[in-house]
Every structure is written in C-alpha cells, then in structure tokens.
Amino acid sequence: MGISIVVTSGKGGVGKTTTTANISTGLAMLGKKVVAIDADTGLRNLDLHLGLENRIVYNLVDVVEGVCRLKQALIKDKRYENLYLLPTAQTRDKTAVKPEQMEKLVNELKEEFDYIVIDCPAGIEHGFENAVAGADMAVVVTTPEVSAVRDADRIIGKLEAKGLDNHQLIINRIKYEMTKKGEMLNIDDMTDILAIKLLGIVPEDEKIVISTNRGEPVITDEGAKAGQAYKNIVRRITGEEVPFIDFEDENTGFFSALKKFFFKK
C-alpha cells in the first residue's frame, strides 16, 4: 500500500510544480515506484517540468469520465522506468473532476505504487479540494514573502480542518545573503508563524529555470545546490534523518577558494 503526498501552497508561483517534479523524480531515483499526478486541470505544467508533453494521449479527466483505462493514461518517464506521470486535461476546467472521484483514483493507484505525488493548483477552491481528497500527507511549499507565508498558513488551517494532520513545510527560493542582512524573512520567522515540521529548505538557484525549460528536474543535476536540497527532502520523506545543510557557510568565488586552499594545509 503506497503513500499519497499532495504538494500545495495556496499562493501561486512558489514552486509547487517544481517541487512535485523533483520529489517524484527523486523518489524514483531511490528505486521507488512513483506516480506524479497533475491536479491543475486547465493549467497543466507538470508534463513540461518532466519533459513529457509530447507523449500525452489520455489524461486524468478521460480516466474519470471512463474514456480510457487508468493504465492507458499513465505515461512512463523517459529517464526512470519506475516513474509515471498522470497528466490532466488542458482544455477543461477544475469542475470536470469531483473530490470523490479523485479519492477513488488515488486509492486505486496506491495499490500499485509506493508513492503518489499530487501537484495541487493554487487557490483554495475546487481544484484544491480535488487535490487533497485522497492525500495521506501534505507538503506545504512557501517562499520567504509575507504573502506566501500567510497563504501557507491558510492552507494549513484548511488541511487541519479536513483532518490531514501530517503536513510538513518546504521553504523555497531562500536567498541566504538577504536573510543574513535581515531584508528577507528568515527560516526561524517562518517556522515560528506556521508552527509545522520543516521538511526542507531549497535555496534560490538559477539552474531551476534552465532545468524547467529543458524538462529535466534539477535533482538530476549533480552540481546544483537546489538539486542537493531536493535530494535531502526526498530522503526525509522516505523516513531517513538527514541534517539540514548549512548553506550560509558556503563561500564561493576565487578568493575564498584560494583561502580555503591555503587554510586546508
């Protein structure tokens, strides 16, 4: 029996789809059988993040409406053979699916897969209700902005009202230089307000943009800081205890590299 994880945030543009793509790829890299579900009907993007947009034939709405079987709509990833994508329809809207149908679908997938990662749309309306319907666990993504933190707070309240108490926080796009100077909310501020368990911290990284455009999740990039952070998040999801990386100590640039070189001796 698998575990279903919904990735949600309330506010748009904080990195839900990027997080979904990376978590599902990361879990697949560890050899788990994973399916990523795009619940953002009408504004689907997860297929782009995974680079699978040209392989979509059937989608989630087709499955729900009985046009095709569930197996037919699942798309196998091009890199990892134990990763599948269940895309949604771009030509329909959120009301095409009901929460009960979604719950049934997720439960069906749980029989066969180890992890089901659901990409939730922004907002707290119908789309959100659908995405969380079958979830066992929620990952709340936020960025160090007051508006994103408030929306995350609202979402946590909504999840708790639904009885979904297993929720954890990912702080995305943090810039350490700015938090150090006090120009940005820092991690303590956010965990203090939201008061939920911290799953991971992802630093701002230009490589995210490149990887999204290429359709290759950043977690597959060995050199990327954000990829490393996602790897740790994935290991924490599987139950491993992983210490938080201290990016603050990291010194880049020629002089600091030189300094390191000499001081090491």
Binding site: R150, D151, G157, E160, I193, A195
Partner: peptide, 25 residues
C-alpha cells in the same frame, strides 16, 4: 488548544483562552 490560522474565525459568547498562536488573517 490549537493555533488559529489565517482565514479561521473563532467566536464565543463568553471569554476565550487560546493555547497557541493567533496568526495574521
């Protein structure tokens, strides 16, 4: 005995004690 989060509304005809935070919103 819980944090009152953004968008939540607590009302009582009497005194209220909240063991937790009351967040913005």
């Amino acid at each position: 005995r819980s944090t009152i989060r953004s968008g939540q509304n607590v009302n009582y005809n009497g005194n209220i004690v909240i063991i937790g935070d009351v967040n913005s919103g």
